[in-house]
Design a protein around this nucleic acid. Sequence first.
DNA 1: CAGTTATTTCGGTAAGTTCAGAATCTAACA
DNA 2: TGTTAGATTCTGAACTTACCGAAATAACTG
Lengths: 180, 180
Amino acid sequence: MIDLSPVKQKFILHWGEMGTRWGINRTVAQIHALLYLSRKPLHAEEIARTLSVARSNVSTSLRELQNWGIVKVVHVLGDRRDHFESMKDVWEMFRKVLAERKKREIDPTLSLLRECLSEAQKEKSADADKDTQERLRELLGFFEAMTTCYEQVRHVPTGNVVKFVKLGDEVTRMLGITPR
Amino acid sequence: MIDLSPVKQKFILHWGEMGTRWGINRTVAQIHALLYLSRKPLHAEEIARTLSVARSNVSTSLRELQNWGIVKVVHVLGDRRDHFESMKDVWEMFRKVLAERKKREIDPTLSLLRECLSEAQKEKSADADKDTQERLRELLGFFEAMTTCYEQVRHVPTGNVVKFVKLGDEVTRMLGITPR
DNA sequence: CAGTTATTTCGGTAAGTTCAGAATCTAACA
DNA sequence: TGTTAGATTCTGAACTTACCGAAATAACTG
């Protein structure tokens, strides 16, 4: 951490904390922050030294970041060590994470809700739990809406994000769909 | 757990798992699932028994759910124990959580990024780290866009959510803002 | 106000996670 | 083909977080 400017330190620590709040391992998030801020790709040893964490820990964490699809291995001429760099396009990065979370958490939840609903219909005490069914159905509806929403957002190219957000603002205002 | 239908069990367990992935304590999420599915408000003792967790643990978790604003205390006539019920409107619940997460995580991140940027400008090695500044600025831009986005979504009444999502779909398609 | 029941707080313990270092594996290079 | 730098995996220790049960507190009843 000594090698880092105070600003970088501050950000990396914060990002680590935020990670834990969203179910991401602290070290994983810190490494991500470090790579995101780094001008050049770093090798594992360098990361371990900079953040004062074990080399092994870095290895595992990098693997995870690669699984999220936001960190990539690159090679530097004349150096046989792997170097790692983070995606720099924030929007693209966000989309990656969104896609991955959908795959890991939303999709399984959709399946589960559907299973539950079909099982609920077969159950003996069927009408006794009409209520549960209704609840599950509403939740399913919600996640389906989220999926639709995601499908739209997923294809907006980075350059258009701001435009897109502003547009949404206009439209909702015009149509008065959001009475306050 | 014995008192629960298989379907309820299944859902509660899943919801608990999903909770952990998003930084929510497993028990907290399970209690939330239980209350969400429950037709009538439950008292703490009942929750503890049903989920086989300690009474005290239930107490703490309920407090947390109340902090999120998605569980409320209600009183049952002729019973002096507190009873708890979950909000049933999924969309409303989602908005609550969104609002809370914004307050707890996004807003502090915005502040931090602004601090970092202003400190970065004062730093000695100022131009050496033009790059870092640029990265931070982009991240800030992203979170600002997210905030705008949130502000729109935040006022959509439950009845209009589906309409809203479909509308977004139409608009983006019409304008061809999302070329595939 | 004494007795009863519900709720919260707190200290210890169990469970889970993170981490360092050793052992193993892989591949570059002589 | 042997040597070595680098990457990965494994294991036990340290630390963190979640959880329980006991004790204290608060709320109610007669």
